[in-house]
Amino acid sequence: MSKKHILIIDDDPDQRLTVRLPLEAAGYQVSEAKSSEEGLGMVKQVRPDLIVLDVMMDTTTAGFQVALTLHSPDPNSEYKEFRHTPIIMLTAIHSTTPLRFAPDSDYLPVEIFLEKPIDIEVLLAKVKELLPQ
């Protein structure tokens, strides 16, 4: 059985490293994208099984846009084959985002929100839950 592929979309290289190391150690194949644009390109290229997505990148809500694009219910969406690819969203409640408290899945088609700083054990548990071997 081939390794499950996880794509990290985050503009902070240090943050990407802290997510990447434990995931690789847990036996996943990991790719990185450093912007929402690059991320959307990589999704088609590497066809990930799961995406770890940061909210604040080039704009304060760039991550929300990526999630909405990927999980769009529009049948003609160019990303329609990724509509069910699970997304873990990394948020910072203590931020200057217009949305002070993290929105829940009623508002955004995202499987799980994780608040920064990331607890590695929690991250690994959630990934395992979303990607049963």
């Binding site: 902070d12 240090d14 802290t18 434990p22 920064k116 700083p117 590695i120």
Partner: peptide, 12 residues
Amino acid sequence: SPVSVTRSLLRT
């Protein structure tokens, strides 16, 4: 932001 990332890095 840097404090949070530093902590995560140390934790890895």
